[in-house]
Amino acid sequence: MNPAPEVEYRPNSAVQISTLVVVNIIWWMVMIAAIGLGAMHLNNCPLQPKIPIYLIVLGASSLLSLSLTYTRNTCEDVFCSVLIQVCMTVLHLFSFGWFIAGTIWVYPIYPPNYTPGAAPFCHKTTYQFSFVVTTLVWVTATLMFACGCCFALLTCCRTVIAGRRLLPSRVSFYGATSLFQEPAAAGDV
């Protein structure tokens, strides 16, 4: 079997690497807190008992996804890398569905009763944490979608504006260094 060809990578800037590390550390801390809050207050939300479970599963699936990402980036075996990628795809699909379910559980009961022992209530910190995390993920996803649409629109506009330079005409060809003229017909000389 032939070895895989070497791929040249452009080094990332220090700012990109630092930002990525900080965002990863913050996300790890938030997901560990989600698991902890969900586990500590598993029975403290009778109004919607699935919210603590939502936090536990959301945190665990996010941490597993991050761990698989790190493992895939260090894995040198092609089969191992493909297997990890398949597992990550399944995990991302599950996480997306779980996030939608969590949204359905968190938003309809806003604002819940926070008084224990009263009518159905929900532990204040647990509910507010789940509400804030869910809202931040929706805001981030919306911003990423909007930026992606703007980028696609700008790319389309640049392509249309540069259209004449991108498409060859009948009298030119790619790679030409000067104007190319078709040969004259035999009777035109």
Score class of each variant (00 low, 15 high):
residue 1 M to R: 15
residue 3 P to I: 09
residue 4 A to E: 12
residue 5 P to C: 01
residue 5 P to F: 01
residue 5 P to R: 00
residue 12 N to H: 06
residue 13 S to R: 02
residue 13 S to E: 05
residue 13 S to L: 04
residue 14 A to L: 13
residue 15 V to M: 06
residue 15 V to N: 08
residue 16 Q to H: 05
residue 17 I to K: 14
residue 17 I to D: 14
residue 18 S to D: 02
residue 20 L to Q: 11
residue 21 V to D: 06
residue 22 V to R: 08
residue 24 N to C: 04
residue 24 N to E: 00
residue 26 I to W: 03
residue 31 M to T: 02
residue 34 A to P: 00
residue 37 L to Y: 13
residue 40 M to Q: 15
residue 40 M to S: 14
residue 40 M to K: 14
residue 41 H to L: 05
residue 41 H to W: 11
residue 42 L to P: 03
residue 42 L to M: 01
residue 43 N to L: 12
residue 45 C to H: 03
residue 45 C to N: 06
residue 47 L to R: 07
residue 48 Q to P: 10
residue 49 P to H: 08
residue 50 K to Q: 07
residue 50 K to M: 07
residue 51 I to V: 12
residue 53 I to D: 09
residue 54 Y to Q: 05
residue 54 Y to W: 03
residue 55 L to W: 01
residue 55 L to C: 09
residue 57 V to H: 00
residue 58 L to P: 10
residue 58 L to D: 10
residue 58 L to C: 11
residue 59 G to V: 02
residue 60 A to V: 03
residue 61 S to T: 12
residue 63 L to Y: 00
residue 64 L to R: 01
residue 66 L to T: 14
residue 68 L to H: 04
residue 70 Y to P: 08
residue 71 T to N: 10
residue 71 T to Q: 09
residue 72 R to C: 03
residue 72 R to Q: 10
residue 73 N to C: 05
residue 75 C to Q: 13
residue 75 C to Y: 05
residue 78 V to W: 05
residue 78 V to N: 12
residue 80 C to K: 14
residue 85 Q to N: 07
residue 86 V to Q: 15
residue 90 V to Y: 00
residue 92 H to M: 07
residue 99 F to I: 00
residue 99 F to L: 05
residue 102 G to M: 02
residue 102 G to Y: 00
residue 105 W to Q: 06
residue 106 V to F: 02
residue 106 V to I: 11
residue 110 Y to G: 11
residue 112 P to Y: 04
residue 112 P to G: 02
residue 112 P to M: 01
residue 114 Y to P: 12
residue 115 T to Q: 07
residue 119 A to Y: 09
residue 119 A to D: 15
residue 120 P to A: 15
residue 121 F to Q: 08
residue 123 H to D: 06
residue 124 K to L: 08
residue 124 K to W: 03
residue 124 K to Y: 03
residue 125 T to Q: 12
residue 128 Q to R: 10
residue 129 F to M: 00
residue 131 F to Y: 06
residue 131 F to L: 13
residue 132 V to Y: 07
residue 133 V to C: 08
residue 135 T to A: 14
residue 138 W to D: 08
residue 138 W to I: 10
residue 140 T to W: 07
residue 141 A to N: 10
residue 142 T to E: 07
residue 142 T to F: 09
residue 143 L to T: 08
residue 143 L to S: 10
residue 145 F to Q: 14
residue 145 F to C: 11
residue 146 A to I: 11
residue 146 A to W: 05
residue 148 G to L: 01
residue 149 C to E: 11
residue 149 C to Y: 08
residue 149 C to D: 09
residue 154 L to W: 08
residue 155 T to C: 09
residue 156 C to T: 10
residue 156 C to Q: 12
residue 157 C to L: 12
residue 160 V to K: 03
residue 161 I to C: 13
residue 161 I to M: 13
residue 162 A to T: 14
residue 162 A to C: 15
residue 164 R to D: 15
residue 164 R to K: 09
residue 165 R to E: 07
residue 170 R to M: 13
residue 173 F to V: 15
residue 175 G to W: 00
residue 175 G to L: 01
residue 177 T to L: 00
residue 178 S to W: 04
residue 181 Q to R: 06
residue 181 Q to W: 01
residue 181 Q to K: 06
residue 182 E to Q: 15
residue 185 A to S: 13
residue 186 A to T: 09
residue 188 D to N: 04
residue 188 D to Y: 00
